[in-house]
């Protein structure tokens, strides 16, 4: 075995140990709630759907397990023309606020 080979071997076993420690820590923590990511995605999408019509296919979910934390990434394609829906919602809300203000004044 060459000198380089010796270094490679030591390196690869250290990498193996670090990778295992990291992934097992995550798996032990996740064992009670395996569907957490699905639940988070559904709830976040439900909130967004209040304002924008999102196609479920146009949602990219990524997860990166790091030391001590996981990073959840949501890449959501917002179609053009959704502002109508948002505008309509805002208009209703404004009207409600206005109506409330009106009744207050009247009282």
């Amino acid at each position: 075995m060459s000198i380089l080979g010796i270094f490679q071997k030591r390196n690869s076993s250290a990498v193996a140990r670090d990778r295992l420690q990291l992934i097992l820590a995550h798996e032990r923590a996740e064992s009670g709630r395996p569907d957490l990511v699905i639940q988070l995605r559904e709830e976040i999408l439900a909130v967004i759907a209040n304002h924008v019509a999102v196609e479920p296919d146009k949602v990219k979910v990524t997860l990166e397990r790091g030391a001590g934390v996981s990073t959840l990434g949501l890449d959501i394609e917002l179609p053009l023309g959704v502002s109508h829906k948002l505008d309509a919602k805002l208009a209703t809300k404004l009207a409600q606020v206005a109506a409330k203000g009106g009744t207050k004044k009247a009282a």
Partner: peptide, 18 residues
């Protein structure tokens, strides 16, 4: 790729993910 697994075969079979 172990750190990047989000969904799996069963999620796709069940329709939880495309």
């Amino acid at each position: 790729a172990e750190r990047r697994v989000v969904y799996d075969l069963i999620n796709v079979v069940n329709g939880d993910a495309k």
